[in-house]
Design a protein around this nucleic acid. Sequence first.
DNA 1: GTGATGTAAAAGTCTGACTTTTTGAGCACA
DNA 2: TGTGCTCAAAAAGTCAGACTTTTACATCAC
Lengths: 237, 237
Amino acid sequence: MTAQARGLHARVLDSLGPAITAGEYPPGSVLRTDELAQRFEVSRSVMREVVRVLESMHLVASRRRVGVTVLPAAQWNVYDPQVIRWRLAGADRPRQLRSLTVLRSAVEPVAAGLAARHASAEQCAALTECALGMVATSRGRRLEEYLVHDIAFHRIVLDASGNEMFARLGDVVAEVLAGRTHHDVMFEDPDPAAVTLHVRVAEAVREGDGPRAEALTREIAEGALRELDILAPPPTR
Amino acid sequence: MTAQARGLHARVLDSLGPAITAGEYPPGSVLRTDELAQRFEVSRSVMREVVRVLESMHLVASRRRVGVTVLPAAQWNVYDPQVIRWRLAGADRPRQLRSLTVLRSAVEPVAAGLAARHASAEQCAALTECALGMVATSRGRRLEEYLVHDIAFHRIVLDASGNEMFARLGDVVAEVLAGRTHHDVMFEDPDPAAVTLHVRVAEAVREGDGPRAEALTREIAEGALRELDILAPPPTR
DNA sequence: GTGATGTAAAAGTCTGACTTTTTGAGCACA
DNA sequence: TGTGCTCAAAAAGTCAGACTTTTACATCAC
């Protein structure tokens, strides 16, 4: 799935980045560019470019005479898709998945409400098609096919909201949904109630009923949160 | 406000980045690293690092034998604080401000609801203090002082939500609020209704009443959106 | 103890040579 | 005419080494 030969830069980045987000280098750790270059067997130029990118993600800070300091997680650009991917691949995947699901629960209802007002005819049609696709694949262990429709559905809603900040969360939602299907226990067919809700959201959007689309999407989100509470430890407190 | 002597890399980045987000190089434009290096009078190494960072923001894509291609805005990492700053400083500031305000209207109510459940005693106290500070400075053209309290208030709510994705939006909210006070017409004292709502949100959080905190924050957000509708052209359609 | 001074460590910058990938032109062949 | 192959050039990618600049820290004088 993930390409292998995208150049040295990308390979080193994909090795060092996850190591940092996984906490292998605790905040405050100091690295040296030269040492890293040796460790990864690349030239200083390549390593400098990698450090610059990590710096732009606020994963590290580079200071003269000190070195490259790992920053505390509170400063990381947690909205950077690459950072999200690295963290989802790492150990605190469950916590990450929960954070993102909570974010979804805030954003998607509002996005659906806006979509009801802004969606084009094509988008409405596509949405309905996705919902029907979900219904069709919701039984009989066709999880992969269901997932495709589910992702497409939520992407369309976010796009149709007309808000670019919402639209850009499409990838995040895709990651969360895929994560749920692939990694977490998902032996059962999808919850029939959720499927129905998706159909009704598509309806509401088609009819331009913003408040209803919003309320229904809120129900979907709450369902996802409940599901997460069952599978993963809630806030662990 | 903005530092000047942070090294060549940062200076070139702060010159090229805004130029791209401002649309000076339309999507599909092809730049060459060497040419850019000449134009900005820096070495290729520096320019390469700049390009790598722009690439990590998905503002450009670099391909062999082709050059550095400017990507369409739909692919930009619009959650990157630096990109947000560049865009807010540019021409489509109004649109940007609207997108971010809509995002706030989705996120902050949910964050407030969570804060009511998770806020520590210290956070509750700080929140109340901010609200009182807002009351105290809400009359008599003390906009700057008011702004400080307003920003602190929203930051605390987002932090207290216990969700890192929400917490990281503190800077965005600060930018939006500051933008409203500084750039947009804001001759009047703050809306008294908004001030009262902040006080009541602080109360609700202190009392652990999530639903009320959420509802009240939703009112604040709706007020902000209304205000924006008056000052700036709505969705221009 | 306080403050000036010097030193060395690390990032920052520049240069030039070389490698690798990729595009598109030119050409052969059907 | 069109299809596919070869090849050369263009641009990014990589490397190595020298030099500059900043700055933390130790040392020394007072």
